[in-house]
Write a protein that binds this DNA or RNA. Structure first.
Lengths: 242, 242
DNA sequence: CGATGGATTGACAATATTCAAAGACAGTGG
DNA sequence: CCACTGTCTTTGAATATTGTCAATCCATCG
């Protein structure tokens, strides 16, 4: 049995027993390929499956009736998407692929089994959702209490951090399959204004963004501008059951 | 053993067995009184206790180094606070009382026991955290994609909904122990602008706010302005273990 | 009793959005 | 293969929204 990036993702939270890992493997049976820009879960409709992302990127989004939209999260290899959605009778947000992607659907019943028989895994799932909450909080602060440049700088810093984590190395350049209008929907800004802010960051020699590729010119400066802290995500797993 | 509002809160998510309920009672041993405006958990410091709120109100907040601040949540009787905080080595946000309050501290170890021996309760805790996430998402959309009046109208609608839920009745008037500057920190706006918006809502005969008391003049109109939906919080508990 | 912090309002300044216009580019259907 | 369509990119100018500053009043708290 190969160690997938999904399993490695879980292992980042805590050490797992062989039987825990064997159970996790059941989440990735039945991979399925989706083309880019496919809606996987539709806002407002019931969702009865969750998905492990094996390859590719997805966006979690919230659409308002008047067309305004907010991107809530970008997800990629190893992430579970749909956790929030299946907890409600109707999905409170939609999910779509950003690139061609391989997703592994699995039923809610696996969660039942996990809570009943794998308490340590259930705890890890809980920790993971606390982490997700922490990122959402960062998003709330970003939108509520930072201006446009700071927001953009902070968002790019977050993306950089995730890219490092995924690659296990530090590279000054990284891809995110996103367009400027989409970036604007992440940041709660208009597309036009994001162009201006990108320009400003380029002129101040902090970051460049060209067609899905970010190039960091001055990471320290960027983080200072964004007031970015990377120390805050140290999870405490000491309380997990054995 | 009296049924506290904390236990009733849990029972809203799913039917519980007698032994589940007996276990929950252990969370409320050791009540402790705090005066208004006491910091219960400090941002950046380790927190090793969680708290059940027995009486009073608390605010969950995020302070930036430059003094800007964002209120993330308002909590009251029956809520657990500190769940996110104890999951990290250092608290990612602070918690303070807004009124005189009675809180019951309990150690993380109770969570360990819950996950190990009360899988159904663990599942309910998980559902509760999904609900909290859903509210955070609403907050993100509010900040990212709604203008000042809409934000305020939406926030007031949320508060009204919670007040109804707590009181189990519908009243056009309800208290929230909050000042305008604090309201501003909830909404990501300046205090001055909140005054303007409150005035606007009063002139359009939708809501009034005087010294901690909201009076709804036209709830339908307010919700329409806010694009408020109350149908989205129907949790699905069918997957919980027995 | 003075000091502090909230409430309130207006004028002015900064910030972000909308509108407009034009080129590039990818996908579609003929 | 090509014209057509829509979306993305880019920029400037006009407009709207929101924040800052300043001043006054008021209540509360030592």
């Amino acid at each position: 049995m190969a160690t997938t990036c999904f399993i490695r993702n879980f292992q980042r939270y805590a050490e797992l027993s062989a039987s825990d890992i064997a159970f996790l493997a059941r989440f990735e049976e039945g991979p399925h390929t989706y083309p880019a820009n496919t809606e996987v879960i539709s806002q407002g409709l019931p969702a009865d499956h969750l998905y492990v992302i094996s390859q590719g990127w997805c966006a979690v989004k919230y659409d308002q009736a008047d067309g305004r939209r907010q991107i809530l999260d970008l997800c990629h290899g190893g992430d579970i998407v749909g956790m929030r959605e299946v907890s409600f009778k109707r999905s409170i947000n939609g999910i779509q692929t950003l690139t061609d992607a391989v997703l592994c659907p699995f039923p809610k019943a696996l969660l039942t089994e996990m809570f009943a028989s794998y308490p340590r895994l259930a705890g890890v799932l809980f920790l993971a959702s606390m982490r997700r909450e922490a990122l959402l909080i960062e998003r709330v602060v970003n939108l509520g209490r930072r201006n446009a440049v700071e927001r953009l700088a902070h968002f790019v810093s977050e993306l950089k951090q995730r890219s490092d984590q995924l690659a296990d190395t530090e590279v000054a350049t990284f891809d995110v399959p996103i367009s400027v209008p989409l970036l604007a929907d992440c940041l709660g800004l208009s597309g036009m204004h994001v162009y201006r802010m990108l320009n400003q960051l380029k002129r101040s020699k902090l970051v460049r963004f060209d067609d899905g590729l970010f190039t960091l010119l001055d990471e320290i400066g960027l983080r200072r501008l964004a007031r970015f802290r990377d120390d805050y995500l140290l999870l405490d797993n000491s309380w997990l059951p054995a």
